[in-house]
Design a protein around this nucleic acid. Sequence first.
DNA 1: GCCGTTTTCGGCCCGACTGTTTTCAGTCG
Length: 586
Amino acid sequence: MGLNAQIAGALTEMARLSELTGADSFRVRAYQRAARAFESLTTDAGDLDRQALLELDGVGHKMAEKVEHIAATGTFPELDELRDKTPAGLIEVLRIPGLGPKTVRAIWQTLGVESLDDLKKSIDDESIATVPRMGAKTIENIARAIDFAASAGDRTRLGLAAPLAALVRERLADVAGVKRLESAGSLRRGKETIGDLDILAVCDDPAALSQAFCDMPGVDEVLAHGETKSSVRMSIPNPRGGADARIQVDLRVVPEDAWGAALMYFTGSKEHNVRLRERAKKQGLTLNEYGLFPDDNEKEPPQKRGVKPKASKTEESIYNALGLSYMPPEIREDTGELDLDRAPRLIEVDDIVSELHAHTTASDGVLSIEELAKEAKSRGFHTIAVTDHSKSQQVAHGLSEERLREHIKAIRAAKVAGISILTGSEVDIMPDGNLDYDDDLLAELDVVVASPHWSLQQKPDKATKRLLKAIEHPLVHIVGHPTGRLINKRGGLEPAMNELIAAAIEHNVALEINCHWMRLDLRDTHVRAAVEAGALIAIDCDVHSAPDFDNIAYGVATGRRGWLTPENVVNTWTKKKLHDWLKAKR
DNA sequence: GCCGTTTTCGGCCCGACTGTTTTCAGTCG
């Protein structure tokens, strides 16, 4: 684990433990905010002096001192003190949906519950009923929430959540009187994993919509069933067989006039919304999910008193009324976007006109060279590169030198009208940083994508050297999925990303955003660092079959989360510009 | 614990829903 992650982890733990011991909520929020600053920090915190630490959002003198402690010792005195006082098992109890710090604290102090197992026992022997405000219904809900947490497991990956959300919207769109329907939440912000799905609707007959929602196939539990809000739990079939994943889906029906305010509110992020409401307040306004209103300090909310909002119908009108330009959902994370005079023109799916990382039946793909090229052509691309695996990837039928030479001939012979087919390889970066083919063979290829596939548990300094060596190689164009992580499965390499980015700029190499929803590698925070430094980015689908081209949406979303604009993305370039860049390395 | 174009102290976003109560505490987003 890198230092930044370690700092973020320690501060998050501090926040959780503080909640459990009854610290005031503003102090808890301060720890959470500082933790987020280090989560998204792309320089190594160890390289920052006191002054630089203080410049981070949400870091003051006391926090900086604690951070320096963590860097030196892995912990800090206040955290150690709280760890001594608080059972470690309570953190997992806190993760059960519906159980907050107050309740966990109560069952801990009155019953001595110190872990999830203790909690289950207290339900079984009914001792939990002696805790204040603990009625039969609450106990029943806790029991169900424990089961749900066990079966839901990790957050759902974007590539599984997005199709499910589309399916839900499709079903609801058939209900009479539905006028608007949109996914909100972290799905709309394009996060790599999703906690629960939020669907927002406008409908003439909210009751019918809500009923249809709760009656959908796949719903196995209804949590709430009202006119404006309904919640269900449903299963996502596992594409590889085995146990289904479960996810909570919320439907909210809102008034048409408040659509923009509601969409903004339910899209989040929470931190972004908090900042917006603070900003509104400073301007003598108040912002809620019904609109932006004049702040008259009345207790009753303005919309209930018939006060006319300054803005509410569209998100753009609300941002404008606050003196801001429209913010694309992907950057609404309170990581500096609210300081912008104008939001950048972010990369879009339609900007992508080439694919430089694709496999055929020669290694582990299912398409022939021609089929691949035709599919790419149908997506409006001017160029497709055929980059099958290199020889070390034996499980993927990686190509020996001889087979690659034959393959090059076959690729050159293939013709599909209207698209350039380039020869290439996704060549393994060996653990020592050498490549899997000799230079004279690599020099024959139009495109070289160098990727790490194994030995992915190397120490950070070794991983950095390994990847730097590949970047410095004069024949390499692109470094594919640079960390090799698999979301929710494998952490992958943790190289010093800033060094890689600096080297990539120096050696005119593009770093890949691999679009597969299990990878999304580079991840959003890495992209942000690359964008700030001005590095080239390749957004590629790592195509193995035709539907893989659709993963482009996830890669583009990841780019947008990193504030990526089209100019530095090689896949947006014209054919001439792209081919000139490739040839410059030959 | 952070922060300052009203403030170096005294604020720190807003509302819905649920379940427990009988006027509200806790959780969530």
